[in-house]
Design a protein around this nucleic acid. Structure first.
Lengths: 165, 165
DNA sequence: ATAATAATTGACTAAAACACTAGGTTATTA
DNA sequence: TAATAACCTAGTGTTTTAGTCAATTATTAT
């Protein structure tokens, strides 16, 4: 997995979308990319590229024409930061041996296991934050602080984010 | 913070260094970059660039001349993955307002707090794995699995890594 | 029907970062 | 003094970032 500003842009835009969407999911008004672009100072065309991927990954739905825009395809609590980042950042295979384990020395690829599991752990961790968490901490003016899923209760969507500082 | 193959190379090289260093820290033989380059198939000159940064950050010590090479500057347990990655990857400021909070809308920068704390969390998380952990899981042939510090006991260096799968 | 809206697509671009290469210099040891 | 190995600087090809530009399609309102 890769963590760059590209993923940041995507998460920021999705958070903006979540915050400007009506809380009533059924008849929520779609949010235009032009609006997100203005509010978050992200280039409209760049947003279009990002949302093209987000749509193909099933995270958002699009409505064309006047009054159209984007809506989240799932409830806020079911869209995680990990989902968003892996939707826009195409991941590279961390191994230089490319799956087959024909590396040097002991015959096995030292880095493969190491990075594969490390990637998984980070991904697991970022899966612990969803849009609902972020909206709450954003509207309450509190800094967001994430508790890994493995720590507290196994609940997925209704954890209350811990306030930091 | 940024997570790319650059950091991966650095961690791989440091793990190789840790594994080929004599366990007795006092009179450990230095490891040459040429050796690491050969074992891990990383370009020698690229390693030189990486170790230049690692040295400036105080993670390794260098011995010049024949029989020279690099040694870890601290005990294995005191060098974390986060240390290594942040030594070679220069971090970017996640905010587009650049510190001052003169952004749009509500006057405050939405993305600033969000990414600052998310970065800190990831960094905190990667601080939970050190070279000693990785050497153990590597030599024992077990896949490494990291438990965040916040979960278990507050101990820093002597946690036993959990085996996954 | 027509115009306006807004998503959708594709091609293209400057700048940065990545992953190196090349070639030299310094310090240390045999 | 010759070999070793760190150290340093500059350059190079490729990929990614972050974006522009232009055109197309679907939908709504007039």
């Amino acid at each position: 997995m890769r963590l760059t500003t590209k993923g940041r842009f995507a998460v920021t835009a999705m958070l903006d979308l979540a915050m400007h969407e009506s809380p009533d999911i059924a008849n929520a008004k779609p949010v235009t990319l032009a609006g997100i672009s203005e509010r978050q100072s992200i280039s409209l065309s760049y947003l279009e590229q990002l949302f093209s991927r987000l749509r193909r990954q099933g995270l958002v739905k699009s409505i064309r024409g006047p009054g159209g825009g984007y809506k989240l395809a799932k409830p806020h609590a079911e869209i995680t930061v990990a989902d968003i980042i892996s939707a826009v950042d195409e991941q590279i295979d961390a191994t230089q041996c490319g799956g087959q384990e024909n590396c040097r020395d002991e015959g096995r690829c030292m880095t493969h296991d190491l990075w594969a599991s490390l990637n998984n752990k980070i991904l697991d961790y970022l899966s612990g934050v969803n849009l609902a968490d972020m909206v709450v901490s954003q509207t309450s003016g509190q800094k967001i602080s994430i508790t890994p899923r493995t720590c507290g209760s196994a609940g997925y969507s209704s954890r209350t984010p811990v306030v930091a500082n």
